Simulated assay, not measured.
Amino acid sequence: MNEKQFDKVKNGKGFIAALDQSGGSTPKALAAYGVNEDAYATEDEMFTLVHDMRTRIITSPAFDAQHILGAILFEQTMDSKIEGMYTADYLAEKKGIAPFLKIDKGLADEANGVQLMKPITDLDETLKRANERHIFGTKMRSVIKEPNEEGIRAVVDQQFEVGKQIIAAGLVPIIEPEVDINSANKPACETLLKTELINHLDQLTDDENVMLKVTIPTNVNLYKELIQHPRVVRVVALSGGYSADVANEKLKENAGLIASFSRALSQDLNANQTDSEFNETLGQAVKSIYEASI
């Protein structure tokens, strides 16, 4: 583990940029960026275009270590290059930003009010490659829709089981049990989730550390105990479908919770913007998210 990056992520001011749109969400991300599906004919062409988008974001002067602690990458991005360097090396060496890797394979069908992760059958190989590419940490997502105690326990059990394998590989896992912002019982889901998370955190040893990525809670400062837990490096929040303005306002209410936004970071960027327009728009988004995070 890179101790300099660990200290920055744990103690620095800023937020985590989520640039990890995967195969299923890439067409939507490209469309929002002004690149329609008729611009590509194959999956490879699609991924090339989204890597171009990510490259433009990462190389922008607005994307800097003063405001951004880390960036989450899609697996294909990890194996792609920016200005002749693998993306993680470019982030760490040129930008001073810690690189994370999305490792989950998507969501299973809903059962007991939740969607577990699909099995990660190539986890050992992925973690080996992540170390070779100088990745600092990982991210994996589940979704909670109903306050079903059995379902929520299964989500957290699965997340920590995989998380311990990631820790053993020398990486820091971001455990992400997202609570659907559209759930009619969102506060009850969050209360049950908090209990399960604390139970698992209390069982970690002194050399086992995790990060948590959560939906901004309905009840302000609900996750204070998680933020203060000695085994938690950082608690970050997903925007979850909220607009940037709404996500930022909700985030500001929660002391110690920092952003890990995707859509809220890039929602106003467009492929047709000039470099000056693009950098100014990204800079405004970065600063607003940064201010909400501190």
Rank of each mutant, 00 (worst) to 15 (best):
E3F: 09
K8W: 04
K13T: 03
Q21G: 01
P27M: 08
L30G: 00
G34C: 10
V35N: 05
A41H: 15
E43S: 13
M46L: 10
A62S: 15
D64Y: 10
I72P: 04
I82L: 03
T87E: 11
Y90G: 00
A92T: 12
E93C: 01
K95W: 01
K95S: 00
I97R: 05
K105M: 15
A108I: 09
I120T: 02
D124P: 00
T126E: 10
R133T: 00
H134M: 04
H134T: 01
F136W: 08
T138F: 08
K139M: 05
S142F: 09
N148I: 01
E150R: 09
E150Y: 10
G151A: 09
A154V: 04
Q165T: 10
I166R: 07
G170C: 08
V172E: 10
I174A: 11
P177N: 08
V179L: 11
N182R: 12
L193S: 01
L197F: 07
I198R: 05
D206P: 03
N219H: 10
V220Q: 12
E225N: 11
Q228S: 13
V235Y: 05
A237V: 00
G241N: 06
S243P: 03
V246P: 02
N254G: 01
N254D: 14
A259V: 01
S260Y: 08
F261M: 04
A271I: 14
N272C: 06
Q273R: 03
N279D: 15
N279P: 04
T281K: 08
V286T: 06
E291K: 07
A292I: 01
